[in-house]
Design a protein around this nucleic acid. Sequence first.
DNA 1: CGAGTGTTTGATAATGTTCAAGAAGCGTGG
DNA 2: CCACGCTTCTTGAACATTATCAAACACTCG
Lengths: 245, 245
Amino acid sequence: MNRVRPDRAESGRLRDFALACLSRQGEMSAAEDQAARAGLSEMHTLPGGSELIAEGAPQHPFLLLNGWGLRQRVLSDGRRQIFGFVLPGDFFGLSACRGAAATAGMVALTPVTVAPLPLLAEMMHTAPNSTLGRLAWRQIRNEERALCDQVVRLGQQSAYERLIGLLLELHDRLKEMRLADDNSFVLPLTQEVLSDALGLSVVHTNRTLQQLRREHLIESRGSTINLNDIALLAEIADYRPVTRA
Amino acid sequence: MNRVRPDRAESGRLRDFALACLSRQGEMSAAEDQAARAGLSEMHTLPGGSELIAEGAPQHPFLLLNGWGLRQRVLSDGRRQIFGFVLPGDFFGLSACRGAAATAGMVALTPVTVAPLPLLAEMMHTAPNSTLGRLAWRQIRNEERALCDQVVRLGQQSAYERLIGLLLELHDRLKEMRLADDNSFVLPLTQEVLSDALGLSVVHTNRTLQQLRREHLIESRGSTINLNDIALLAEIADYRPVTRA
DNA sequence: CGAGTGTTTGATAATGTTCAAGAAGCGTGG
DNA sequence: CCACGCTTCTTGAACATTATCAAACACTCG
């Protein structure tokens, strides 16, 4: 495992980011704060492509501080389905059943910085009304909600709608973490990854993206993507904004 | 609400079934047993088509004693995606966050008999290691697992594979509840419902079913369906048996 | 029997995939 | 700074899968 510690300035920035995430649902108790800081002091960076959780393996809770991950399953013939993306500020490695095997693999898409938060799994069960406990449950619920959205996309929507729906979801989630502008964000995904998430071939994803660009619904410079008319996009894809209460 | 109480013989049978479901994960404490019996004494039957939980509405925990339900979302243009089916012995109306809005609607597909179990939502948080608490979590985890399976089906599999995968899942789950034979079961679904679950048109579902029959992989008499070679079917659909530990 | 719902069929069209190859971008080492 | 190799993106053409439309048939229930 190619673990590296982020440099001093970066690690300070990430610690602040983490503490903001952790107290989004309310102030942490002294004990929680201490546990969180202990976890944060162990933050480390892993290269893109690292497998953070193997499907079916036991899992431990982490907070993603930087970079993108994804949750996936690989079929025996090599096909891959991506369930969703894990963004900075998301917790991962949580399960409703303590110590249960992971139902999905978790892989780093870019280099990622993560911090272990073993207490999260504990508090989820021992102190469900604590700040950390509530965070953990909220994460599980948000994941369920995102999975449902994914099912609807794949089951009922056209390539065009699927792509729009996913872009809107990512934009929403990044904006909530203050990692996106009002109508643009950095999308570090190859078209192949996008395709595996949307259940499309790479070629078709490419052509659908081109169509969106031709229609001036999106623009892209490098990996930055611009959503030109979010209200219109949302209507096209029947998008329901995430209520991440 | 067209509530009806099941007749005496039926209600006794269902009570026994429920108690078996409730103690599958271990014996209930005296308090749990009492709460369960209180809920069971309020069991009632609703006609097919009843909406048991509205999407986005607050939800309360129930045990499904008889009949089939489904979890779905309806898009604004009328398209419907079915997330999965709720079978006898399943709990529904549970959420990781107490009092959270339902992420999916729950509708009775056939007439259903249900029993309220308000304690389940409580114990999930207050006594996570109790028999009922563990049951509740297991249910949430199983739902997540089933949702992932559904995403893989819709995203990566052909109509042929999807249909097989769903039939195998239903058979497995029914068998676990002793509601299916070794290789046959009653499938009370119209092809339209099946289509909305599989993300296919009714016509295509029909033709795919015919193909399976032509190849002698399945047989059907009325609504009873026969899986003729489960091992082969499982291989075709890359099916992973549900570990409902 | 008649109405309604569910299933089956054929013909045609849309959507998406595969294959193959070329162009563009990007990091690395000389 | 350039050349090289690699990955990613783009394009065209042929093909496969699945949807849509329209109609006939079957079954059940009142």
